[in-house]
């Protein structure tokens, strides 16, 4: 018996179970208030409704059926996926960490028998999954009604979803990184705004990168913001294996960079934690 308990596989399994429970708790907490929960999905529907009218008129004015390899329905489905994922990451983790640092709760969190970073990763995942199910369900219905179906490939769906999963992890790391800045800076709002606006400009949340002028698209594709939710959604709506290889490479490079950076900043930051009794 003791051999089973001490076996590394079993301990790993127990640890994973612990984090899975954290994800589950966050999943159900997030769905408690229905109005709050559904409001994010309704926002996604409203946005893609606006985009449909905007891009229909834009394409008609330009007298084009396809721009940058994308038709209007492809643009709308791509935006729906990117918006659903981006909205599902709310509330931003950095704000939660900022509150933990300001209130001093972090002093207790880092001493609990779990990894602080994994705790937040799985906690965010729980909230993200619950939001995503609702966003994608309503978003799918809205896109179907507004622009009709588009043809998808299995390769696009599988490999695009893989990029979206890595994109979620990249977003988590950047958001965590911004949250950790609160160890040194009193107000991290400015960093949050800059990050969310960079996502808006280069993350294809309003304007798909395929519609960018060429010189700007080449730059934007190399930035981490386009590798969050744009790259995956772009490949789902119009798969291109060469583009997949390119995006995967850029995404991996940014993942490794932010993973190392977060590790370094976290180890430096916890040395700044001072506990005041009371």
């Amino acid at each position: 018996m003791s051999m089973v308990v001490t076996s590394p596989d079993f301990r790993w399994g127990l640890k994973f179970f612990k984090y899975l429970e954290i994800a589950k708790v966050n999943y159900f907490t997030n769905t408690t208030y229905l109005a709050n929960f559904l409001s994010k999905s309704i926002m996604v529907v409203l946005r893609i409704w606006i985009f449909t009218q905007l891009y229909r008129v834009t394409y008609a004015t330009a007298n084009e059926n396809e721009i940058g390899g994308l038709t209007v329905p492809m643009v709308i489905w791509g935006l729906m996926i990117a918006q659903s994922l981006n909205t599902a990451t709310r509330p931003q983790l950095s704000k939660l960490i900022d509150e933990e640092v300001k209130s001093g709760v972090i002093a207790y969190s880092i001493n609990r028998p779990y990894s602080y970073i994994l705790f937040h990763y799985f906690g965010s995942m729980g909230r993200f999954v619950s939001n995503l199910i609702s966003n994608l369900t309503l978003g799918f219905l809205a896109a179907f009604i507004l622009v009709g179906p588009i043809s998808l490939s299995w390769n696009g769906l599988l490999l695009g979803s893989l990029l979206l999963f890595f994109g979620y992890t990249l977003d988590f790391l950047i958001d965590l990184m911004i949250g950790l800045i609160s160890f040194w800076v009193e107000d991290i709002s400015a960093f949050n705004w800059i990050y969310s606006k960079s996502q808006l400009i280069f993350g294809g949340l309003i304007l798909p990168l395929s519609l960018f002028p060429d010189y700007l698209r080449n730059i934007a594709e190399l930035l981490p913001f386009s590798q969050l939710f744009y790259s995956g959604s772009r490949l789902i709506v119009n798969f291109d294996f060469q583009l997949f290889q390119k995006y995967l490479l850029i995404q991996m490079a940014w993942l490794v960079f932010f993973w190392l950076l977060v590790g370094y900043v976290f180890s430096k930051g916890i040395k700044h934690v001072s506990v005041n009794g009371g």
Binding site: S189, A190, W193, K197, I201, L207, F212
Partner: peptide, 25 residues
């Protein structure tokens, strides 16, 4: 200053859009 940068970022999206499509309707 952060908010000014934030606003510049937002208007930049539309600057890019209008670079590609100078007139929309």
């Amino acid at each position: 200053i952060g908010m000014v940068i934030n606003d510049i970022g937002l208007i930049l999206v539309f600057f890019i859009l209008f670079q590609k499509f100078p007139s929309i309707n």
